[in-house]
Every structure is written in C-alpha cells, then in structure tokens.
Design a protein around this nucleic acid. Sequence first.
DNA 1: TATACTGTTTAATATAATAAAACAGTATGT
DNA 2: ACATACTGTTTTATTATATTAAACAGTATA
Lengths: 260, 260
Amino acid sequence: MQKDTKKEDNQESRYILSSVDNALSIMNLFFDYEELSTAEIAKLIGVSRSTAFRFMVTLENRGFVSKTEYGKYRLGLNLFSLGMLAYNRMELVSMVHPYLSKMAEESGETCHLSILDDGIHVMFIDRALGSSCLRMDTAPGYRQFAHCTATGKAILAFQSDQVVNQYLKKTTFKPRTPNSIKDAQELLQVIDQIKLDGYACDNEEAERGLTCFAKPLLDSSGHAYAAISISGPTTRMSTDKEIHLQHLTDTIESINSLSF
Amino acid sequence: MQKDTKKEDNQESRYILSSVDNALSIMNLFFDYEELSTAEIAKLIGVSRSTAFRFMVTLENRGFVSKTEYGKYRLGLNLFSLGMLAYNRMELVSMVHPYLSKMAEESGETCHLSILDDGIHVMFIDRALGSSCLRMDTAPGYRQFAHCTATGKAILAFQSDQVVNQYLKKTTFKPRTPNSIKDAQELLQVIDQIKLDGYACDNEEAERGLTCFAKPLLDSSGHAYAAISISGPTTRMSTDKEIHLQHLTDTIESINSLSF
DNA sequence: TATACTGTTTAATATAATAAAACAGTATGT
DNA sequence: ACATACTGTTTTATTATATTAAACAGTATA
C-alpha cells in the first residue's frame, strides 16, 4: 500500500526531479494551511517569489490549485476529481475486508473500517462482526462525530493541526455519555496522547458499556486516510486490551503490504 | 470555481514550468487509464523512457502514484488524502446550496446536488424542495445506481471511457421501471447523446411518473466532479423542459464563478 | 509620507532536465 | 532452442530550462 518512502534516506532519490518534487511538496503544504499566498509558499519551500509564482501558475493551469478572490491559493477541483478517482479505484473496502474479517475472527470482537467523510464525521465503511452474542452491531454507512469514536480520534490525531482546528470550529461537543469528551481542550489533550501511544481508545464515550481501540492507516506523508478498530463490551475489552492492540498492529502491517 | 483554462491559448502559459506541467499531465493520464507502465507514460506524454522513469520515481516518492506488484503505476494514497482534503474544504454543499435553493424556488421543483461516491453509486448530498404538494422528496444521503438517475448519467457522460468501463463491469442492470436502461450497450448510447446535448434526462427510469433533468459541474480538465438536477412529475416536467434546462445552465454559471 | 510588504515581469546564469545509448531481464513467437 | 522485441534501469553528455536577482507597480500599514 505505502512504501514508507522518507524524504532523505531514500536510495532512489538520485532520480528525483527537484522542480517536480517542489511542486508536489507545495501541494502537501495544504495539509497544514487552507490558503497560501505566493510569498508564503516561497518562504515555506525555500525558493524565490518569482519561481513560486511560476509554480503556482503551472499548478493553477491544470486545476490542482485555484485562486481565491483575495489572490490566495487553495486546493483545486482537479485534485478533488483525482482523489475521488484514486479512492474509487483503490477499492479500500474490498481490499481491506479480508484482513478485517480475519481480525474479527481472531479477536472475537466486531471490527470496523472508517474514513473521515466530510471533515467532522467518521463513516464506518466496512465492518466484520464478532463471534459473541453480545457484540457491537452497527448499520453500514453509520456516521458519527469523529471525537466520539476511536477511529475518528485515531484519524484526527494523524492529521495536520489545520484539519484539527477546522474540526474544533465546526463541531459541537454534546456529551453522549458521562465519559464523552466535553470540549476542544480535552480533545487536544487526547490527541496528543494518541500521537504518543499510536492508538486511540473509546472508553464508553459514545455508548455506555462499549469500549473500542483503533489505529490509523497512514499514507506516505504520514497522514491518516482511514482507521481500523476493534469494539466490544468494556469488561472483555479491558482484559484483552494488549491482545487487541497487537491484532490492530498486525492487520495494519498486512494492509500496508498491499499495493494500492 | 474553475477558470476554464485551456492548455494552449492561455496568455499565462509563458510562465508554465514544462517539467512540472508534464508531471501534472501524467497524473491526469490516470483519468483514462487505471494502470500505466513507464514505457506507456513515455509514449503518451512524448518523452523518453528515461525521463518518464524519473517522473515516476519522483511522483512515487511523494505518494502521488504507487507501484503495483507487476511494476505498473496507479494513483497513490497521498492523492486520495489531498482529494478528500480538497473536498472537505471546498464545502461543496454550503457553497452550492444558495444557488440550489434559488433554482428550486424559481423552477418550483425539487433540485439535487450529487456526486459519484464509490464509482457505481451517486449520492444526493444536498437538495432543495419544490413548492408544489406533489414533489420529489428524497432522504438526504440517498444512494442510487448512477445509470438510474439523471445526475448519475450526467456525471458518467463527462468522465473518461475508463471510468465508464469500470462502471459497466461492476453494475447490474436490474430494471426498476419499463423505461430503465436495460444493458451496457443502451447506457453507452445514452451517454453519447448526453455528450452531444450537454444534459441528461431520467424519463421515469427510476420511478414511474418521475422525470429529472441534470447537468454536470466540470473541473478544469473537463471531468465532472458533481451534477445538479431538477426533478418533478412527468407531466409538468415535459411541459417546462426548456425552462428547466435554462435554470440548470444559469445555476452552473453562478457556481462556476465561485472561487473554491 | 515613508516603509514594507505584495504579485508580476524581464533578463542572465548556472543548474538540472532531457535524450541517447547501453545493459540486463523478461516475454514472445518461431 | 533461438531470436526478436519488448521492458526497467543506469550512466553520460548536452542542451534546454529552472532559478534567481533586480526592478516595477500596487497596496496596506504606521
């Protein structure tokens, strides 16, 4: 799926075309900024304003960025079209499903695959049910505020600060259980912890008695494009926590070895 | 929204960086091909195999393309991440909604905004209800096979052959009404007609008595990223067809003048 | 009014993109 | 089994082009 290609220590880097690479890293800047001016881009990637200007003319001409009425640049429509195409073609659900089923079978608990579908909600796009009578049973296509779910928090923790800030602006923190995250500050603390731990928990924050663990699926730039989770009754989940975390790690490793 | 920037007759083209532009057009090749080899890319954009090789190393290093186990290239995960980001940030629904409401008010009929959400289904992501008692009334988030809806056909008609072929492979043509499209051949004929007309019809193909007209929203490369439609009872719709088509044209013009 | 920013344009220079050629590997068909 | 025709990869040489600096005009700020 992703080849864990870092920027510097890559032995293939002698073939990288620097101007093209700069153009690609300009697009990646928009993970951290919603709008950027030519001068800001020039500073951020370390080129003169005149070359930054030429980069932006080139990118805008193909619709990869677009200019706002104030002369700033944003991500463009063509990028959205290509992204949807990439999503449709990678067939995330069908490729991940076998591993999700395997994880549900081995862990005995219900497993989910989620994406952030509109900036504030996570959507469960696939699931594999657990083997117990008492198990989590969601409807396919179920949507939920990201901060109420383990997968949502796992995705948010591995997004840029800019995306998180957008989330905080748009979301209302209506508590669903006594354990629900109450405000922006608490969410930011939780996100910091997830970054350290590498996994996210839902300790009865969406529904009493329900505990979930989740880990993110990361692209080559380190951003989460989806997350997988294991969910079940709190008593069982707390006992088997370490086992479940290992299941998540193993499954992600299998998924990453796929070639999308 | 999109600036209708053609490739050649652009007076800004003296600033375009050719190597970056080639890299962007390589990504756009994937609208027409799901997988491409280095040699194929070299032929298609008109460079030597050695430079095409360098382009692909550069693109793969940033996750914009990924290599399959057979050594061919596909669109990469980073492109999906950026596309989702672009989609979330452009806030399609909130930007288009005022125009959709205006169109519903002026036409008196229910209007929809749709995207192709997984390659085979269209999803109605926004609607504005008509003023009549007898009106189309869908649930938000309603999904339907693309070939059964006007918006779905409008989007398919302005996608690459490759996307259409994928659609034909994955879809089952179960007729929903006597007018439903019966097979792949019929759909291809309809698509050709839509390309000529610039709009798509649903003549009681999803539900008896219901007629819809739709037009696509196009990005700078000419691909549909969404579509808008007007829906209502066949008797009214057939009478007011030309008026509704004009409403669609006017609305799209307004949307295109927005800067996403 | 002066300062410090912009985005745009031009021209000069040095860098880096390009293609050609050669190599090794694979698949094809004879 | 052989020959042909493809691959992807690597190196090298040359040319083209990406880059910068400098200058200009416009805007906002103090």
